Amino acid sequence: MNEKIILQFSKTKLLKAGFTLAIIASIASTLYVMKAEALAWHVWHQFTHHDHHGLDLSEYEVAIEGKQLADYKNASGLAFNNETGTLFTVLNDMSMIVELTRDGKPIREIKVHGTDDLEGISHLEKDYYVVADERESKLWLLQIKPETRELSIKDGRLLKFGMNERGNKNFEGVTWDSVHHRLIVVKERDPKYVMSVTGLYEPNEDKQSQIEVQRMTQFDPALKWALRDLSSVTYHERTGHFFLLSDESKLLKQFNEQGQTLGSLALWKGFHGLHENVPQAEGVSIDDEGNVYIVSEPNLFYVFKPKSSRT
């Protein structure tokens, strides 16, 4: 009799424990789908002290929302050219680079031969650009002149890394740090990280340079908890800050050189004047006036500006 009571009691405990675990799992799943940790980080940054030497992203509002870029497919990277005052995006499905005005109007198409997975682009200076091939884990230094309408990836200078396998979780974004003459490259996930590359391009053509690759570990703690993936990066020369874009977290986060978070821009409906979520943010750039530009697959274009500039 006692054994039966004990057995029944044990079964009841197991059932209650299983029910509790099911509730916890359900709550955790719901929070994950809602991107609760990203929302918490964003709200926290809105109420913490802002670095006055950075961009106050809490004061930004959308000025152009979800403008379609013609019939293009898979707009993936974005770069602003301070010398021309125009933007450049890469289309990985169409193997093309497209030059855009600041309001998202296409003004030039450049067909790129020899690659089918362009994911990032950055302007260095003059006619020189770097593009990233995600599947092959390669960076290419290309010269794109004002009259260029077609080029081969093989005409550029190749930088290939041996640290990543072929696949679709590799280089997602690249930007040029003009102050330290280095490229900043982000790997999407598994694992996600930020690294610097020096020596690929030297503004002083007479200077001999050696390519050096270094992981920027100061960003690792923030990446571990704050961003689910990395889809793009841009460097802002005036502030010396890095802006990391996460498609899965739907956040653009600002960091200083030490890896300290200095604010964020939320890409969800209801934030910063957005009427709908930014569906798949893949590229980001900032112009000389501090305006933030984002492209979202397959072909959506966004502009965010400080409220003060719109009054």
Rank of each mutant, 00 (worst) to 15 (best):
K224R: 10
S309I: 08
I211R: 06
H53P: 00
A17I: 03
E276T: 12
N164R: 15
T30D: 10
E65K: 11
V43Y: 12
N74I: 03
G156Y: 07
N170G: 10
I97V: 10
F243M: 04
Y129E: 05
K145Q: 13
S95M: 06
H42W: 03
L124W: 11
S308W: 07
H272Q: 01
L87P: 03
T101L: 06
P106C: 02
S29H: 09
F161E: 09
K73I: 07
V112C: 03
H53Y: 14
Q68D: 09
L227K: 09
M34V: 10
K269N: 11
V33F: 13
P221F: 01
V43D: 12
D229N: 15
F304T: 07
L15V: 09
G173Q: 02
W268P: 00
L31T: 04
D247R: 14
E147S: 13
K207S: 12
R102S: 14
T12F: 10
P298C: 00
T217F: 06
L244S: 03
H49R: 12
D71R: 13
R102Q: 15
K305S: 14
P306E: 01
E282R: 07
S137E: 08
E83A: 15
L139G: 05
M216E: 15
K138F: 05
R189K: 14
Y60S: 06
D288Q: 14
Y293T: 03
E297P: 08
V194R: 04
D56Y: 11
L300Y: 10
F9Y: 10
D229L: 05
R310V: 14
T311A: 14
K35I: 13
L200K: 09
R238A: 12
L274Y: 01
I5Q: 14
D288E: 13
T86L: 13
H236V: 15
Y201R: 02
D51I: 05
E257Y: 11
G173K: 00
H42G: 02
Q208A: 15
N256C: 01
D177L: 00
E289G: 04
N168S: 13
M216L: 15
D103A: 06
D177M: 00
I211G: 14
Q258G: 06
I153C: 07
V179R: 14
L267V: 04
R102K: 15
E83V: 08
L244E: 03
K169D: 11
V112F: 01
N168D: 10
A63Y: 08
Y32S: 12
F171A: 03
V186W: 02
L262H: 02
Y235G: 07
S196G: 13
L91F: 15
N277C: 04
H42D: 15
E61P: 05
E134S: 08
D206I: 09
S285V: 05
T234A: 04
K192P: 02
Y32W: 10
T89W: 01
L274I: 06
I294H: 05
H52K: 10
G77H: 06
M34P: 00
A38N: 10
L31I: 04
R135S: 08
V185I: 06
I110M: 07
G259N: 00
D127E: 15
G104Y: 08
R310L: 15
K305M: 10
I6S: 09
T234G: 01
E205F: 09
L7D: 14
I110R: 02
I23C: 12
P279T: 08
S249D: 02
K16Y: 09
M1T: 13
E150D: 11
Y193G: 03
D247N: 15
H123V: 10
K207V: 09
D116Y: 08
K307I: 11
